[in-house]
Amino acid sequence: MLTQLDSLKTAALAALDAAQDESALEAVRVNFLGKKGSVTALSQGMKDVPVDQKKEVGAKLNDVRTAITEGIDTKKLALQAAQDAKAVEGIDITLPGRLGAGVGALHPLTQIRDLAIRTLRRMGFALAEGPEIETEWHCFDALNTPADHPARNEKDTFYLPDGRLLRTHTSSVQIRTMEAAKALPIRIIAPGSAYRRDEIDATHLSVFNQLEGLYVNQDVSLGDLKGTLEYFFREIFGAGTAVRFRPHFFPFTEPSFEIDVKLEAKGKEARWIEIAGCGMVDPAVFAEINKARGDTLFDPDTTTGFAFGLGLDRLAMIMHGITDIRHLIENDVRFLQQFAA
């Protein structure tokens, strides 16, 4: 019996070795350990074993059963492992990924506008808006622009038959905001479209995008203007960016400045690039607003403020090195794709 057990064990282990899949393994289990299996059959012969050998044969039987069971478990794990290894067989992980709906992009103008807005919001500016079809009063008169100012003619400005016009700058939102204000301070930014009768070419659009800013309070100073805009442009162009203010002229601010930032174009020496206009709100603007409101919320003796405006199209061009402004309105996917975030 002991000899039989040994040879059974050898046969079982050989069969296990030969088993190549789960079902072959199961067949081995049934053949040896199953109800009608050969080990089971032998164990039924235990009752005929003489008493003095029972202990030894019993131990052997257990040993054989354990060896086969463990062999099956080990083989099962080995087969599973081999199968798992096959799960990634033949996969070329260097192939391009599947993109689902594909990659889209925000327009570069949207991206630069959002950057500017996020920056200015951190500085406590809220958004404001106004109509693009404006009255002459909001676009010019209230902004201290004389009735016979060169911009106020049909050569430079789009008019509607009813006498209204397409705003030539977002500065009209300054007026809209001050007209409706309930109290000071006013601290707003207004992104929006503006219109000028310019032929479209590499550097001009008849419809373009601006960002206007206005801060009005008691005792706002040129120092506030300078600090705010220096901070803003350094946030946009980098902490070390040089910013300078050149005296200029705008009808609705005094003093007025143009702002240049010093930027390096690829492979060229850094140069000053004109980027924005700004100034202290002209008292004549406050006076005109008071007249329209019928009160003195904007008391010209104590109220001061600063305003600024910048061209977003131009900012996008400078930021990204775009050479022709028309790219911004043509929406060629080969262009837009470059700005995928």
Binding site: G104, A105, T110, E129, E132, S206, N331, L336
Partner: peptide, 28 residues
């Protein structure tokens, strides 16, 4: 104006992440 802007910006980002390209065309 702030709420409108944030809402619009959310829409823009949703569409861009779904594979849409944002266009800016002339209003005239």
């Amino acid at each position: 104006a702030d709420r409108t802007y944030d809402f619009a910006m959310g829409l823009r980002q949703t569409l861009a992440s779904r594979g849409f390209f944002e266009a800016q065309t002339l209003r005239l």
